[in-house]
């Protein structure tokens, strides 16, 4: 097989530059053929997804909004080691560490915790590397389909602990179901 006839995609077509005869130069046959192709599409199923009412089916590896997890006793897992911030390719995570006081033992699992933990949602690319980096399994990307709300202020896109930490009742429910099983 010579190099000219090889077709990797199997769809290679020779370009023909032959002169059109009179009937072809009327373009009639070609246009009628084209019209039949388009009219078929009039009756095919439409591919549009009517967004707010319908949502797209997401892939099994979809990564949505982050969540800072709590353990079985409802304590925050994060120990403010900063590995997630280090691994983040978009440099979206910032945090401030603080030492746990003795009376806060029921709130934080480790002796050090993040008093401030912020993710800038304008920077985050939802790659999930923070989740992979975390040694304490504290941060996860959930399957939540709630998108980040649009806003005119940049501050609205910096999600603090109030938005990121897992709600307490959710942690309680998780523990209960685990105990039941």
């Amino acid at each position: 097989m010579s190099i000219e006839t090889i077709s990797l995609s199997g769809r290679k077509k020779e370009v023909s530059n032959k002169k059109m005869n009179f009937w072809e130069s009327l373009y009639l046959v070609a246009i009628v053929k084209g019209l039949f192709i388009t009219i078929r599409h009039l009756f095919t199923r439409k591919v549009t997804i009517k967004y707010p009412e319908q949502t797209r089916e997401l892939s099994p590896v979809y990564r949505g909004q982050h969540m800072l997890m709590r353990d079985e006793e409802g304590r925050e897992r994060c120990t403010a080691c900063g590995l997630c911030a280090l691994s983040c390719p978009a440099e979206a995570i910032t945090m401030t560490a603080e030492e746990r006081k003795p009376e806060e033992k029921h709130l934080y699992r480790e002796e050090k915790y993040a008093s401030v933990y912020e993710i800038n949602m304008l920077r985050c690319i939802f790659c999930g590397l923070c989740e992979e980096a975390c040694p304490k399994q504290a941060i996860y990307l959930t399957k939540s389909q709630v998108m980040v709300k649009s806003s005119g202020k940049r501050e609205d896109f910096i999600f603090g602990k109030d938005k990121l930490v897992m709600p307490l009742d959710m942690a309680i429910k998780n523990t209960q179901t685990k105990a039941a099983n």
Binding site: T38, H41, L42, R45, K46, V47, T48, K50
Partner: peptide, 13 residues
């Protein structure tokens, strides 16, 4: 609408 339908879309609705 017809443009949309011929292109497998729905068009303004």
């Amino acid at each position: 609408k017809i443009a949309a339908w011929l292109q497998d879309r729905i068009g303004p609705n």
